[in-house]
Amino acid sequence: DENEERIRAFALYKGIDPEKARELWERGEINKDDEEKAWREYK
């Protein structure tokens, strides 16, 4: 689903483990601007 892809995109963008990215996502600790930037680059 799209959230999974967004988490993966963010992990790649930040160079972090996707599981770590998922934890940040679930806790609401992902910066929305960074997340959008990562998503645009990923697509």
Rank of each mutant, 00 (worst) to 15 (best):
D1R: 12
D1L: 12
D1Y: 13
D1T: 12
D1Q: 12
D1H: 11
D1A: 11
D1P: 11
E2Q: 12
E2F: 14
E2D: 13
E2I: 13
E2N: 12
E2S: 13
N3T: 15
N3W: 15
N3V: 15
N3S: 14
N3F: 15
E4A: 11
E4Q: 07
E4F: 09
E4L: 10
E4N: 08
E4G: 06
E5N: 06
E5M: 10
E5S: 06
E5H: 09
R6Y: 06
R6H: 07
R6T: 04
I7M: 06
I7L: 08
I7G: 00
I7Q: 01
I7H: 01
R8N: 07
R8G: 02
R8V: 10
A9H: 04
A9R: 07
A9G: 01
A9S: 04
A9L: 07
A9M: 06
A9W: 10
F10I: 15
F10M: 09
F10S: 01
F10Q: 01
F10G: 01
F10Y: 15
A11V: 01
A11Q: 01
A11E: 01
A11I: 02
A11L: 01
A11G: 03
A11H: 00
L12R: 11
L12V: 10
L12G: 03
L12Y: 12
L12T: 09
L12Q: 13
L12F: 11
L12K: 13
Y13A: 05
Y13R: 02
Y13G: 01
K14V: 12
K14H: 12
K14A: 14
K14I: 12
G15C: 15
G15R: 06
G15L: 03
G15A: 05
G15K: 09
G15V: 02
I16R: 00
I16Y: 04
D17H: 11
D17G: 07
D17N: 09
D17F: 04
D17M: 07
D17E: 11
P18M: 15
P18V: 15
P18R: 09
P18I: 15
P18T: 14
P18D: 08
P18A: 10
P18E: 14
P18F: 15
P18C: 15
E19L: 11
E19T: 09
E19G: 10
E19Q: 12
E19F: 08
E19P: 04
K20F: 13
K20P: 01
K20I: 14
K20Y: 14
K20D: 10
K20W: 11
K20H: 12
K20N: 07
A21I: 04
A21M: 04
A21W: 02
A21R: 00
A21Q: 00
A21L: 02
A21G: 01
R22D: 00
R22P: 00
R22A: 05
R22T: 02
R22L: 06
R22N: 01
E23D: 10
E23I: 11
E23T: 07
E23M: 09
E23Y: 08
E23F: 07
E23G: 06
L24E: 02
L24D: 00
L24K: 03
L24Q: 06
L24I: 07
L24F: 05
L24G: 00
W25F: 13
W25I: 09
W25G: 00
W25P: 00
W25Q: 03
W25A: 03
W25E: 00
E26A: 13
E26S: 10
E26M: 14
E26T: 09
E26Y: 13
E26P: 00
E26L: 14
R27C: 11
R27E: 04
R27S: 11
R27Y: 04
R27M: 09
G28F: 03
G28C: 10
G28E: 04
G28Q: 04
G28M: 05
G28K: 04
G28N: 07
G28S: 04
G28I: 02
E29K: 06
E29Y: 07
E29Q: 10
E29G: 07
E29W: 08
E29S: 06
E29M: 13
I30N: 02
I30Q: 02
I30K: 02
I30G: 02
I30S: 02
I30Y: 11
N31I: 06
N31T: 14
N31D: 14
N31Q: 09
N31S: 15
N31H: 09
N31R: 07
N31V: 06
N31E: 10
K32M: 09
K32G: 08
K32R: 11
K32V: 10
K32Y: 09
K32L: 11
K32N: 07
D33W: 09
D33S: 09
D33G: 08
D34S: 03
D34K: 02
D34V: 05
D34A: 05
D34T: 05
D34P: 01
D34Q: 05
D34H: 03
D34W: 05
E35H: 05
E35A: 15
E35T: 10
E35I: 15
E35Q: 12
E35V: 15
E35G: 06
E35P: 02
E36N: 06
E36P: 01
E36K: 05
E36G: 03
E36M: 07
E36T: 06
E36D: 10
E36Q: 07
K37S: 09
K37R: 14
K37A: 14
K37G: 06
K37E: 12
K37I: 11
A38I: 06
A38L: 04
A38H: 04
A38P: 02
A38N: 03
A38W: 09
A38F: 11
A38K: 03
W39I: 05
W39V: 03
W39R: 03
W39P: 01
W39Q: 04
R40G: 06
R40A: 14
R40W: 12
R40P: 02
R40I: 12
R40D: 08
E41F: 13
E41L: 13
E41Y: 14
Y42G: 04
Y42E: 03
Y42M: 05
Y42W: 13
Y42H: 04
K43W: 12
K43A: 09
K43G: 12
K43P: 05
K43V: 13
K43N: 12
K43C: 15
K43M: 14
